[in-house]
Amino acid sequence: MAAAIARSYSFQPRSLFNSNTIYNPSPYGGYSWLGPAASRAGTTPRCRQICAAMQPRPTWLPGLDPPAYLDGTLAGDYGFDPLGLGEDPESLRWYVQAELVHARFAMLGVFGILVTDLLRVTGLSKIPVWFEAGAVKYEFTNTQTLIIVQLLLMGFAETKRYMDFIGPGSQAKEGSFFGLEASFEGLEPGYPGGPLLNPLGLAKDIKNARESKLKEIKNGRLAMVAILGIFVQASVTHVGPIDNLVEHLSNPWHKTVIQTLASSGS
């Protein structure tokens, strides 16, 4: 573990602590490498930089020595790849985009399920429970129309996304979409832009938007776990997540996931 942590440090002791810095007298009553603010504030920007550099890289398992191809440059990279799926650079590039798309769909799915289930449970709408919604006949359209909308519109959007993945920037070239290319101009593969897909102008400098990317992928991973939990709940209890929550709150000490799974297996 000590060796793994040591390899994560990104400063060289000899470059900081040497005879020219340690023993060079300073008019500020301290060592010259601490800088002029050391005697007043007890720390300096240089010290903070050094302390930050000394911090080991965060990994999904403390003390883990992450693979060389996961160098921390990707948003949300904590060195997790036990099966070595990302060793090939092209495969890793594809997996990054696949995770991003699944994360976004999961966030939309969780939001949609919770909102419609809340409307149904409170009696504000007669929306069916989410896992039965696909079998219901809707007055505003028919099944054939819904299939066409999904296949054509979503298929078109996914095709454009894939073409931008294999040829970054190709979908913003003049003449690629009826003169509307500027409305769909992407920031980089996986991050669409333009007034239609980025109306608020968030993260226009996508190269330096690491914090925004990290927040999105973290929330997306949480949503993927949540959607899996909703699927399992529906399979075991045959009701929606809001129903499960209401039942738990009615008797928190006896209506838990443990009792539910135990009763379903008996």
Rank of each mutant, 00 (worst) to 15 (best):
K255L: 01
T159Q: 11
L245V: 15
F105W: 09
Y28F: 15
C47F: 10
F156Q: 00
A38P: 02
G30I: 03
A226I: 05
G112S: 14
L180C: 10
G179E: 02
Y78T: 11
V257T: 14
A38D: 12
S176I: 07
S264Y: 10
L151M: 13
Q150K: 12
H248F: 15
Q150E: 09
P252F: 05
G155A: 01
V239S: 10
L124C: 12
L119C: 11
A103Y: 03
A262F: 02
F111Y: 07
T122P: 00
G194E: 09
N198F: 08
N208M: 04
G265L: 15
S183P: 00
M107R: 10
E132V: 02
L92P: 01
Q150L: 12
I147F: 10
D164N: 15
V129H: 04
G29C: 04
N219R: 04
G201F: 09
N208L: 02
L180Q: 08
R57D: 01
G265Q: 12
N208Q: 11
A75N: 03
V136A: 11
Q233L: 10
L92W: 08
G179M: 04
P66H: 05
A37G: 06
K204H: 08
T44F: 07
I217D: 05
S235R: 13
W94K: 10
L114Q: 01
S26H: 09
D164W: 05
P56R: 08
S10H: 07
R93L: 12
G86D: 03
L151S: 10
A53P: 00
E87D: 06
